[in-house]
Design a protein around this nucleic acid. Sequence first.
DNA 1: ACCTGAACACCGTTCAAGT
DNA 2: ACCTGAACACCGTTCAAGT
Lengths: 221, 221
Amino acid sequence: MAKRAPRRTDGLSKEVIVQAAAAILDDGGEAALTFRALTARLSTGYGAIYHHVANKSDLLAAATDAVIARVMGDAVVEAEPREALRTVSLGLFDAIDAHPWVGAQLSREPWRPALLEVYERIGGLLEALEVPERALFDAAGALVNYVLGVAGQNAANARLLTDGEGDRAAFLATVSAQWESLAPEKYPFVHKAAAHLREHDDREQFLAGVDLFLAGVATLR
Amino acid sequence: MAKRAPRRTDGLSKEVIVQAAAAILDDGGEAALTFRALTARLSTGYGAIYHHVANKSDLLAAATDAVIARVMGDAVVEAEPREALRTVSLGLFDAIDAHPWVGAQLSREPWRPALLEVYERIGGLLEALEVPERALFDAAGALVNYVLGVAGQNAANARLLTDGEGDRAAFLATVSAQWESLAPEKYPFVHKAAAHLREHDDREQFLAGVDLFLAGVATLR
DNA sequence: ACCTGAACACCGTTCAAGT
DNA sequence: ACCTGAACACCGTTCAAGT
């Protein structure tokens, strides 16, 4: 009886490891990604992984970069900058919604190389929108931050729902009921917002925010 | 020789525990908050803490709520809604900058009771700004998300700087140099942005984003 | 009711040893 | 060069036992 597990015949690579990590993250969320789970999935040892990856942080960062790079690669080039900005923003939103761990990671390490592409694309499109030079960088920073910020918050909700058992409608109904039960004299706005909360569509609300932003940018011209 | 540490004479309470946790978080960042560090600081045992607090998540949430509640309590009521919105936003930004762990926590659990106050205040002020009913909730959601999102990103940077050794100027110079070294044909925007990055003020850029947002909101009237 | 601290079931990471 | 897996130094959390 062999004491050791059979050795992998195909070589390991950072890419293979990062892809396996992403699969684990997608399946079970952030808590599921452990080196033990990773060695099991790859039928290998700890050292083999550490040979290709510096540590867990490095692994998460690489997996995040891969997702963002894919989104930016997929995003079609549109003629009209305003529409293109909406498309790029929504692409990021959807990717982070599909991979909630990406949202958490981006808010933890916002200077990743992957975001270079995002800044370039969004900045370039704002330039095409004829935003004046003096406001261009503030506008780009604000829009990128809005997109990542909202997508991250949304991802947190998505995580809450997959980690727990409940479905989205039930969760929103609970929060909505809480808001509704607040004294209208003390919380007039939140009290009124409760009804909207139950029916709102996250994607639409996200896009409404992008549009508000672009409307603000348009006043600068 | 007594085998056991002397028993606390004053009683423990959730408030005392939460405050001690906040102090540890402020001192050493998120990694420093362990139950071992907490028992040492409070001269108590694990069970004592678990008697007042459900688990670590609960502890972090309570500490976050306390910080946000303080900010919202401190925020002065201003006559002019536009100025009041800037004040509230900046108050949140500064609080999260001073306590970076709050930013991380809020992006992890965005439905905390503490945020009720934030939604109420910001929503109410937008209402005072005569934002039409149909757009009010999207606008409030977007603005709150922008504020928390940017503040969270900023907090991540702050964390990067305190956890590592470097100072802010050196860090920005490094990123800026990286951006500048990119091929201007491939990254025209980021290449140009490098100079701005070195000199920009996070607070000012944050406020510029709030203003862009409010300008967009103003077009709805 | 409130508190103590040994013990348990996990982590990420290291490293001597294998091929 | 690349890989294995026992071992180490941590975690959060539990719980029988104390006051």
